[in-house]
């Protein structure tokens, strides 16, 4: 009985033989491309993968043990990074409101204005945060201020886009009711649009805040202040135990902030 069953199972395939053959060929072709490109890339590396593993050992040996003695010295820079992210996110959060409304098709019915803000925001998003930081550091010198500017512009691009899409998905009926009871544009927006998007707005701002913390570390490496700046200095001086401590501190901070903001967002939605 069981034998017969297994036989029927064997002869019945879910896919026709031809499809099976094609998929198998495609699979091996893709695999071949991967292996070929891996081989080619390795040629450019110093010692291939075995070399990388050896290097890894050297790196670990250099980085460990971390020098926790500098904790008190880097604490201020870490706080500076958090401050940068908070200020940038707050400014972006405020500036995003008019931009998001103007780039939402259902609210801004005047087409030229809608296209203008849309295009502006699209342009804003094409500039990488690192490039923004380099530009602002060039303009204002090394420090926290260019960092804040770069983060603000960077997060404004993301936020305005996400929030305008939230606005475009709201229920338009209450807006019609407010208009029908004689409310002006601001009253209609405040009374029927704001309550509908407020939870998502807060959630998105928190999300962008998390992104900003991480981004500000990278921006610090090109001179935009905060912990990234210190990390970059230590790496340049080959002071790996110090650098390791900084990396651990960043890691812990990002984890804690993500945890808090996740809890906040859960409570909101």
């Amino acid at each position: 009985m069981t034998n017969k069953n297994s036989l029927t199972q064997k002869s019945m395939s879910l896919y026709p033989a031809k499809t099976k053959m094609q998929v198998t060929i495609i699979f091996f072709v893709v695999l071949g491309i991967y292996i070929f490109s891996m081989y080619k890339t390795q040629e450019q590396m110093v010692g291939g993968f075995s070399g990388a593993l050896g290097n890894m050992y050297v790196v670990i040996e250099k980085f460990f043990p971390p020098n926790f003695a500098i904790l008190s010295a880097i604490w201020n820079s870490m706080l500076e990074t958090i401050k940068m992210a908070i200020i940038a996110t707050s400014i972006a959060g405020i500036l995003t409101v008019p931009l998001a409304v103007l780039s939402a098709q259902n609210i801004t019915t005047f087409k030229p204005l809608y296209y203008l803000t849309r295009t502006l925001l699209n342009l804003l998003r094409t500039i990488p945060d690192l490039v923004l930081a380099v530009i602002f550091v060039g303009l204002f010198g090394v420090g926290i201020f260019p960092g804040i500017l770069a983060l603000t512009v960077f997060s404004l691009g993301i936020l305005a886009k996400l929030i305008s899409e939230t606005i475009e998905s709201v229920d338009m009926n209450p807006l019609e009711a407010m208009r029908a009871s004689g409310g002006n544009v601001f009253q209609v927006i405040w009374y029927s649009l704001v309550p509908q998007v407020a939870p998502q707005f807060t959630s998105l701002v928190l999300y962008v805040f998390e992104i900003n913390i991480r981004a500000s570390v990278v921006l610090g490496m090109v001179g935009a202040g905060g912990i990234g700046l210190v990390l970059n200095q230590q790496l340049k001086f080959y002071n790996y135990p110090n650098a390791m401590t900084i990396i651990i501190v960043i890691f812990a901070t990002v984890l804690i902030i993500e945890f808090i903001s996740n809890k906040l967002r859960e409570a909101l939605l």
Binding site: A177, S181, Q187
Partner: peptide, 22 residues
């Protein structure tokens, strides 16, 4: 066409919007 996330009182007061300054 009520604002669903807003309470009843505020929904009703919205009727005064046309008579109230921004």
């Amino acid at each position: 066409n009520l604002v669903k996330r807003t309470n009843v009182f505020k929904n009703v007061l919205a009727g005064r919007l046309g008579h109230t300054g921004t």
